[in-house]
């Protein structure tokens, strides 16, 4: 078991708010790891710290053994560690296919290649992935006209187009029609198993994460509360208290 993301003693505050305090965790290569915790417990902040969205106050973060805590977002993305946004970010004015083509892995591209046009191969890959997330019929629609759930699926497909090694998903099922959630779980699993992408998933829906994850970390008030297998987390009284206490 080798870890692909290693977080050591990371702390991050915003003014007086301690969003992450002395967090250490590791994400196993090739696995699906879950990150849960009540609202405001610091999950998104930890993702932001990992992908270089903001500087951390202390601690270290490694990706594939390399220290990345001082790297900017683009550089980390080009190492193959990608994230999706909790609020979902797609290019609303572009079509589904255009959104996919813009997501081609620039880290695998020489600058001169930017002056080429996308050929049949790229279009095919874009359409195949859109089909994979169930958006093939809508591929020529303006992405901004899609429903929130469909935009989330598009953002997921865009991330896959980028061929990452590790993918951080921030609440991938939030806002998705409950009848479609099982399909999404299946797709996340296949992205993990078939494409070999390591997934680190923030999830609010307990059923989803318990179903999917190999290992789960639970945050509360910015601190790491518990870690373990889904079964262990489900029966952990501290986790249950944290969730009950939050509601």
């Amino acid at each position: 078991m080798t870890s692909i993301i290693q977080v050591n003693n990371v702390s991050k505050s915003f003014g007086g708010v301690v969003a992450n305090s002395d967090i250490s965790l590791s994400v196993e290569k090739g696995a699906i790891t879950g990150l849960i915790g009540p609202n405001g417990s610091g999950k998104t902040t930890l993702f932001n710290s990992i992908v270089g969205y903001h500087p951390i106050d202390s601690g270290t973060i490694q990706f594939e053994g390399r220290e990345i805590s001082k790297f900017p977002v683009q550089k980390i993305a080009r190492l193959g560690l990608l994230r999706t946004f909790q609020q979902t970010r797609i290019y609303g004015e572009m079509t589904g296919v255009e959104n996919m083509l813009i997501s081609l892995p620039h880290r695998k591209m020489r600058f001169a290649e930017a002056f080429g046009c996308n050929g049949a191969e790229e279009h095919e890959r874009a359409e195949r992935l859109l089909e994979f997330v169930g958006l093939y019929e809508k591929r020529f629609l303006r992405a901004g006209s899609l429903s929130f759930g469909q935009q989330k699926l598009l953002e997921f497909a865009m991330a896959l187009m980028n061929e990452p090694t590790g993918l951080l998903l921030d609440e991938p099922t939030a806002g998705i029609n409950p009848t479609l959630i099982n399909g999404l779980i299946d797709r996340l699993r296949r992205a993990n198993a078939d494409l070999g992408i390591t997934l680190f998933v923030i999830e609010h829906n307990m059923r989803v994460i318990m179903n999917m994850a190999d290992k789960i970390y639970c945050l509360a008030h910015g601190e790491l509360l518990a870690e373990g297998s889904p079964a262990e987390i489900q029966s952990d009284s501290r986790v249950i208290d944290a969730y009950l206490g939050a509601h």
């Binding site: 992908v51 993305a77 994230r83 620039h106």
Partner: peptide
Amino acid sequence: TRFGAAVNAIRDDEEKAEAMGI
């Protein structure tokens, strides 16, 4: 070209473009 598309991506959402490694 891809260059043109990337430039439009910067206009529409630069933060997203950065997050995708452009």
